[in-house]
């Protein structure tokens, strides 16, 4: 629990007590993360192989090792409200190399799931949801790609929902079941009006 000293607001912010207190931890967080990620997140010994392997880390403040630490200590709010949570490219290099056989990528995915339950999610992710809902693709085909495909001797559209749009309905059914589209629309509307 952060102790307040009653300074003026600006000074209070500057001298903010940053120590870790046990009350900062939510003991439910780690079991939740483990249940969703299905990996032994508590076994992390902070060797840094994950961050060393991460293509995102050298060019951002994203530190997967940091998220693993927050999982171990149950720092739920800190983890879920950190915008870096959304910088994982899901390349799985960390999962390949982790000497403790943990899947850090899946830990990140679990945290994103938990964050989304609290409406914490960047708008671009929601727009991806909307794109999948309407076309079956997170990144729908475009004319540049179509031309490139033709040059390679491929069909203009791939044999997916692009070629068989009748199957988009099935995808929509799945997304509707989880209310993913409805939630995405709601949050986008709240943020962008």
């Amino acid at each position: 629990m952060v102790r307040k000293k009653g300074y003026p607001e600006a000074l209070e912010k500057k001298l903010h007590d940053q120590r870790y207190y046990r009350e900062d931890s939510n003991p439910e967080f780690l079991p939740k993360v483990k249940a969703i990620s299905r990996t032994i997140a508590h076994m992390c010994f902070q060797c840094g192989t994950c961050t060393g392997s991460c293509p995102s880390a050298p060019r951002s403040t994203y530190r997967i090792r940091h998220f693993m630490r927050r999982a171990v200590l149950g720092l739920e709010n800190e983890a879920l409200t950190d915008p870096d949570l959304w910088l994982c490219t899901t390349c799985y290099s960390c999962t390949d190399r982790c000497p403790r056989d943990i899947a850090p990528t899946d830990v990140i995915m679990a945290m994103r799931n938990l964050a989304f339950k609290r409406d914490i999610i960047p708008v671009n992710f929601l727009k991806t949801v909307q794109a999948i809902y309407s076309s079956g693709h997170g990144v729908p085909n475009n004319d540049v790609n179509r031309a490139a495909r033709e040059r390679l001797g491929l069909t203009r559209d791939p044999p997916t929902t692009h070629m068989y749009p009748e199957y988009v309905k099935g995808i929509q059914k799945i997304l509707d079941h989880y209310k993913l589209k409805a939630n995405a629309d709601r949050i986008v509307k709240e943020r962008e009006g």
Partner: peptide
């Protein structure tokens, strides 16, 4: 050599 300097909290090349 690629690693994470965990004390500096920065990736190392």
């Amino acid at each position: 050599v690629y690693a994470d300097d965990t004390l500096l909290n920065r990736p190392v090349d």
